[in-house]
């Protein structure tokens, strides 16, 4: 069955993972810029990473006939030094012009600090100034509820923002409703221990899937995570009696619909 992996950190994965995803039906992978597991020491470190995302990784994906797109930003974990973060933000616009870049992301909060909030707002403005889509990371575990609320409150301060062009990722049962009620898109992340299991993801799709503003992703990265989490969730949807057309809407058409708003050529066969 065809599907799109709308959030995966493939720079941390091997070719075996690309092969397995291709065999499972993956047509496109969207890769947000994020934290490498350690803080980078220079703007040049970010420049190289953005080149890896936009030039090198698409070539690896192409070997298995998977289209590869990326999101560019400085992540919240490295936003605690605002002056450094602003130097990184200065190099982002040249990457936003590229034909395989979807927008600004994954920006957001991590520990809900004032510096994170300031850098988040500056990158929202950057996205608006360049007419870009926005992908938002919400904090982990005990910080998620507060962080999601703060994020929505900050977004509301931007009068000219279209919530239909903003994806708020890593929603769970206690945050999904506030995200959808505010008109944003929501991402359900299938990640061991700290996020969502396939049965819980299907519970949320049962309750909120008709919004047509949800997608699922694995967010697979350098941590213990599963690049095949999405095909496993497809099996779960089948077990729960969803028909193939509805499953296709959740795992293919919804992400295509969101991504095509970027204005770049995104899988024209959808």
């Amino acid at each position: 069955m065809r599907y799109i992996e709308p959030h995966a950190h493939m720079v941390s994965r091997t070719m075996d993972d690309y092969q397995a995803m291709a065999m499972a039906g993956c047509r496109a992978i969207c890769e947000p810029a994020f934290w490498a597991g350690f803080d980078r020491s220079s703007v040049a470190g970010f420049y190289d990473y953005f080149c890896q995302l936009t030039e090198h990784e698409p070539k690896r994906a192409a070997r298995y006939h998977i289209a590869h797109y990326s999101w560019i930003c400085i992540n919240p974990k490295e936003a605690e030094d605002p002056q450094f973060a602003r130097e990184v933000i200065n190099i982002i616009p040249e990457f936003l012009k590229q034909e395989n870049v979807l927008g600004v992301g994954e920006i957001g909060l991590n520990k809900n600090s004032k510096n994170e909030a300031a850098i988040f707002e500056e990158q929202v403005q950057l996205a608006l100034d360049h007419n870009q889509l926005i992908l938002i990371h919400t904090p982990h575990l005990e910080d998620k509820f507060k962080g999601t609320k703060l994020t929505i409150d900050m977004l509301r301060q931007f009068g000219d923002i279209d919530p239909g062009r903003v994806m708020i990722d890593h929603v769970e049962e206690h945050t999904i409703k506030m995200v959808l009620d505010a008109g944003f898109w929501g991402g359900i992340t299938l990640y061991p221990e700290s996020k969502c299991t396939p049965p819980r993801a299907v519970d949320m799709l049962e309750r909120y899937g008709d919004s047509n503003r949800l997608w699922m992703n694995s967010a697979c990265d350098w941590g213990v995570s599963d690049p095949l989490a999405l095909p496993k969730a497809i099996l779960e949807l089948r077990k729960r009696g969803f028909d193939e057309a509805t499953i296709d809407r959740f795992v293919y058409q919804n992400p295509v619909k969101f991504m095509q708003q970027s204005g770049i050529r995104f899988l024209p066969d959808a």
Binding site: N112, A117, L141, K146, H174
Partner: peptide, 28 residues
């Protein structure tokens, strides 16, 4: 599920002066 997640969440409001050290642990 929502209830459990809420009870394990930070109930405070407003951003923190500084990001706390270390990763989130799953309870507040």
């Amino acid at each position: 599920a929502e209830g459990v997640l809420n009870l394990l969440s930070d109930p405070s409001e407003g951003p923190l002066e500084q990001a706390g050290a270390g990763p989130a642990v799953g309870a507040y």
